[in-house]
Amino acid sequence: MSRLDRWMENSSRALARRSGRRGFLARLGRVIAGGTVTGVAALPLLPVARGQASDESHGSRAAAPPEDIQGPEGDPNHCDYWRNCAIDGFLCGCCGGSSTSCPPGTEMSPVTWIGTCRNPLDKKDYLIWYNDCCGRNPCGRCFCNRNEGERPVYHPYRNNDINWCAGAESQVYNCSAAMIIGLAVEGQPEK
């Protein structure tokens, strides 16, 4: 029975990766940016396309980060997911939200910390915005503690031990999201 469960889970995840809304919109974004419509570089697409939009405004063309990675590095609800390279906390995707949004009833802290993670498919570094979601008790699911490029608290802009909910209405930490805000020119210097 457990083997059947695992098979169903893996099949569902694989199907979601192939046919999910994010994948569809990312592909659509690539088609649009590929030249079918000109002058649309500033169109706001999903967060995964921000790097592309930002980069194209400089006159160069970069593809949206590939998201069809197999295994844990391609599963946003897994600690090994590539964007979670310096996360410390509960993954919002396991808590009723997603890797880019907060669970209902929580508020995204406006202040946060920013680092870079390398996408294993295109080998490019992306700027990742780690946002804490605040206002409900700690989620308690999918705890991850990866600290690549993290630095002690006296470097607050590189520290993931800080309760970034200090910038929100409620200082009660619930979970953490990891969003792409752009294509990095280079990896963060601490790596």
């Binding site: 570089a41 500033a42 706001p44 921000r50 939009a53 930002s54 405004s57 969003m179 805000i181």
Partner: peptide
């Protein structure tokens, strides 16, 4: 946020 980043860059 997406609008901010894209507008910001341009």
């Amino acid at each position: 946020a997406a609008l901010l980043v894209t507008g910001f860059a341009a």
